[in-house]
């Protein structure tokens, strides 16, 4: 069996969620590696879009930021930012939004704004950026995030971006007709929303992870599906491609460290 880290397990599982014909709006950070891994393995025609306006980008290395020249140079086209948000995102042309978060609740509502009170914050986070509209305008949303009690909380401090709201049909009550968070991939497991309540339930556990590990690293009462799957381990090819991607990225940015 091939050795891999929990982060590699998470990235590979996240990449597998994407299909070859998806058009994916790529969030900053963790999603970027997963999306590019998908493109370099099972989904070569996957369209990746970054909010800087790059459509169909095929970066050889992971970008330092969403505005890297590499994203523009390898894209089918680069459009102005207003066009990106108006025609392509709001216009409903994007099938999947891939997002991370600082804080997440069991309904997939996301906080990337503040920890603590908005007017007197304990920690001021960068803010929503593109996420509030990515979360509502993309066909569905995949979330990728390392699991911890600090991040996976009963109540988030600020609703930056809508998930399933208060659960059930609440999301639709805001005039949102897209699916919302349909998968949450962590370093321990995969969760999917309950078909009726829309709260996340664990549907697949990564090999070697115990139920207690998931419970201990989650701030809400964890619910497990009746039929729990074991997440397939990363195969040798996926790991090789992912490690090569990270190695190329490190080398390319080496002179700039």
């Amino acid at each position: 069996m091939v050795d891999y880290t929990p982060t590699e397990m998470m990235t590979v599982s996240a990449s597998r969620a994407l299909k070859n014909d998806d058009v994916c709006f790529v969030g900053i950070g963790m999603p970027s590696a997963a999306c590019n891994l998908a493109r370099l393995t099972h989904a070569p025609e996957l369209t990746l879009i970054y909010e800087s306006g790059t459509i169909g980008t095929k970066p050889d290395v992971l970008p330092l930021s969403i505005g890297d020249g590499e994203l523009c140079e390898t894209a089918v086209n680069t459009v102005p930012v207003p066009e990106m948000f108006r025609y392509w995102l709001q216009g409903g042309k994007i099938s999947v939004g891939f997002l991370g978060a600082a804080q997440l609740d069991k309904y997939g509502n996301i906080n990337t704004t503040v920890i603590g009170d908005y007017d007197d914050p304990k920690v001021r986070l960068p803010g929503g950026g593109g996420a509030p509209e990515i979360a509502t305008s993309c066909g569905e949303v995949f979330l990728v995030m390392k699991q911890s009690k600090r991040g996976f909380v009963e109540k988030i401090d600020f609703v930056t971006s809508l998930g399933h709201g208060k659960g059930g049909d609440d999301r639709a009550s805001y005039g949102v007709d897209t699916k919302g968070p349909s998968r949450l991939i962590t370093d321990l497991c995969i969760m999917e929303p309950h078909p009726v309540g829309k709260h996340f339930i664990v549907t697949s556990i990564h090999p070697g992870v115990k139920r207690e590990d998931i419970i201990e690293n989650t701030g809400w009462a964890v619910e497990f599906a009746d039929e729990l799957a074991e997440t397939p381990v990363p195969d040798a090819h996926e790991l090789q491609v992912l490690r090569d991607l990270h190695a190329r990225t490190a080398k390319a940015h080496e002179g700039q460290q």
């Binding site: 948000f85 108006r86 709001q90 509502n109 704004t113 908005y118 929503g128 509030p132 509209e133 509502t136 305008s137 600020f158 609703v159 930056t160 971006s161 809508l162 709201g165 999301r171 805001y174 005039g175 949102v176």
Partner: peptide, 10 residues
């Protein structure tokens, strides 16, 4: 005017 801030707290 745009389709935005739906369900968001800002």
């Amino acid at each position: 005017v745009f389709k935005g801030y739906r369900g968001a707290e800002l």
